[in-house]
Amino acid sequence: MDRSQLEHAIRAATEIIRHDTVVIIGSQAILGSFTEDELPLEATMSEEVDVAPMEDDDAQSLATELDAAIGEMSFFHETHGFYVQGVGMDTAVLPEGWTDRLVRVNNANTNGRTGLCLEPHDLCAAKLVAGRAKDRVFVNALLEHGLVDVDTIAVRLETVRGDDIRRDRALAWVRSSAGR
C-alpha cells in the first residue's frame, strides 16, 4: 500500500459515512507518518486499511456500512487492489494519551477530509498487544529501520490498561528486542 491509497481510503470512507473525520488504527496508519519510500516492505504489505468512524453507534452501523461498500471482496477492492475494514474505536488496545498524538492526513487528495492516524509508537504498542506473528514482524521491521524507538514503545506499553497479560507479553518482547 502507498500514501495515495491511504488518502483514497480516507476520501472514500468519509464520503460513505458522511463524516469529515475517521481514525486509521491498523498497520497502514504508518503511512500517515512516513511515505512508502521511507518504509520497509513489511510495513506496507497489507491491502487493508482499518478505519474507525469517530461517531459510530453501539451496533457499529457506520463500520458495517464501510464493510458493505468498500470492504474485502467488494467492487472497490477488486478495482483498486485494497479495501477498507470498518472497525470500532475499541478494536485496538492503545496506550494512554494516544488521542493527543494522532497524526492528521488532510489534503487535496482526501478532498479536505481528515484521517487521524495512530502515531507510530502507539501503533507499535497496539500491534504488540494484539500479539500476532505478523504484528511482531511489522514492529521489528520498523525497529530495524530506525523508524521507531524501542524505549518509547516500552514506555507507551506501560500505560496500556485492560489486558495486563497481553501487555506484559508485549513488554517482554520489546525488552528482549532492546538487546539486539
Rank of each mutant, 00 (worst) to 15 (best):
F138D: 14
P120C: 06
D122H: 11
G32F: 04
R136N: 02
F82M: 02
V137N: 07
E72A: 14
L94T: 12
D90W: 10
M89D: 00
C124D: 06
E42Y: 02
D67P: 07
G131F: 01
T114F: 01
E42H: 15
F76A: 06
V84W: 03
G112A: 11
Y83E: 01
L41P: 08
R18E: 15
I16M: 09
A63E: 01
G115I: 10
R113Y: 02
Q60E: 09
A59H: 10
P53A: 07
I70V: 15
T110S: 01
E55V: 02
D20G: 12
H121T: 11
L31Y: 10
L94E: 05
A92I: 00
D122V: 08
V105L: 12
A59C: 09
I24L: 15
G88R: 05
D67K: 12
C124F: 13
A125P: 00
R18N: 14
L66Q: 09
H77M: 12
G86Y: 03
A108M: 11
D56P: 06
L116C: 10
L128T: 04
A63P: 01
L123M: 13
V22H: 03
T79N: 14
T114R: 05
C117P: 13
P120S: 08
Q60C: 07
V129K: 04
A29M: 11
